[in-house]
Design a protein around this nucleic acid. Structure first.
Length: 333
DNA sequence: CCACGAGA
DNA sequence: TCTCGTGGG
């Protein structure tokens, strides 16, 4: 997922406290939902479901995470993906294939009682489908949390909103946002600080990546960072085999981006990909006005509709209904 | 992922 | 008070 720039970005990540993050956060909604759906599962891979078998992992994730955000003075704005560009088609097809295969392997692993494998395959079979998107928007609406419909990539729209000053930073796990020009990216914005990697639990904390500092440190222009992305591979192009972030950085620093592509992929024209990152479709047609949380509506949806425990929902709402109510009196712009 | 209770 | 394990839906 996303562009594999971690190895060259690592030096420019700085730990950040929750207090330093108050303000409007543009959340890469697809990324957040994907995280919820992959991670909020039982050990055998089964997601949270209501009695009808409808998946509820994402609703649980949204409710509790937003409650935490609001308590810490973070005002989230969810930015949803619009229509994918044709450049992304190969990636979309490939991901679907991987998901389908994983779905089959998941079932097989469950049948032979291989729990670890089942969990792994279940995660790989995760899809953020239309129902997930619609139910997420329904809950956000009830919570009074604004959301924006991007014309194209949500990451591009979220980045644009930070550039405009409508939001302070983008929240995503993907480095693509930096290629889209997000001045600040925040990763690992979770309260628990725990993440399971290959069965082991490690501690992660929120980290901030400032684009200008990263570019200055690497002595690159944003265009050059995109060039590295193109060499490594993005959602919009396959990349050059055998070139990772560090090799890509060397190639670009030596000014050999065009030569390397001409040698390895003579039929590939990188300019549409470059253009996609520099001038993606974005919109100014959005409102960041927060609504009042509809406590009764939230209870009706989650407890009556999806079998959530009223005690837990009320407890979560305590945190944000009061605070959110106060905040709405102020300007959200 | 997050909340919560058990145990140290 | 903190860490760890488990259930949540």
């Amino acid at each position: 997922m996303g562009v594999a720039l971690r190895d060259i970005i690592a030096d420019y990540k700085t730990p950040v406290t929750w207090e330093a993050l108050s303000g409007i956060a543009a959340i890469d909604a697809n990324n957040a939902l994907y995280q919820f759906l992959t991670i909020i599962r039982q050990p055998d891979g089964t997601p949270l479901m209501d009695r009808q078998g409808r998946v509820t992992s994402h609703l649980s994730g949204i409710l509790f995470r937003i409650a935490n955000f609001m308590e810490k003075g973070i005002k989230p704005v969810f930015v949803f993906d619009g229509k994918p560009t044709e450049l992304k088609q190969a990636t979309i097809d490939e991901r679907r294939k991987l998901r389908d295969t994983a779905g089959i392997k998941w079932k097989e692993a469950v049948e032979r009682g291989d729990e670890a494998e089942a969990y792994k395959q279940a995660r790989s079979s995760t899809r953020v489908d239309a129902t997930i998107i619609a139910t997420s928007k329904e809950l956000l609406g009830l919570m009074g949390i604004p959301f924006v419909q991007a014309p194209g990539e949500g990451e591009a729209q979220a980045s644009y909103m930070v550039v405009k000053g409508d939001a302070r930073y983008v929240v995503s796990q993907d480095y693509d946002t930096l290629l889209f020009g997000a001045p600040m990216l925040v990763r690992n914005l979770t309260v628990s600080g725990k993440r399971k990697i290959r069965g082991r639990q490690i501690t992660v904390s929120p980290e901030r990546i400032v684009l200008a500092d990263t570019l200055a440190g690497l002595k690159l222009t944003r265009e050059q960072l995109i060039e590295i992305g193109i060499l490594v591979g993005t959602d919009f192009n396959p990349g050059v085999e055998g070139v990772g972030a560090k090799t890509g950085l060397k190639i670009v620093q030596k000014g050999e981006f065009a030569a390397k592509l001409a040698e390895k992929q003579p039929d590939f024209d990188p300019s549409p990909v470059m253009d996609m990152f520099l001038h993606p479709p974005v919109t100014d047609d959005y409102s960041l006005a927060a609504g009042h949380p509809d406590a009764e509506g939230i209870r009706k949806m989650l407890c009556d509709g999806y079998d959530f425990s009223p005690e837990r929902v009320d407890k979560a709402m305590e945190g944000f209904t009061v605070k959110a109510g106060q905040k709405t009196l102020e300007s959200w712009f």
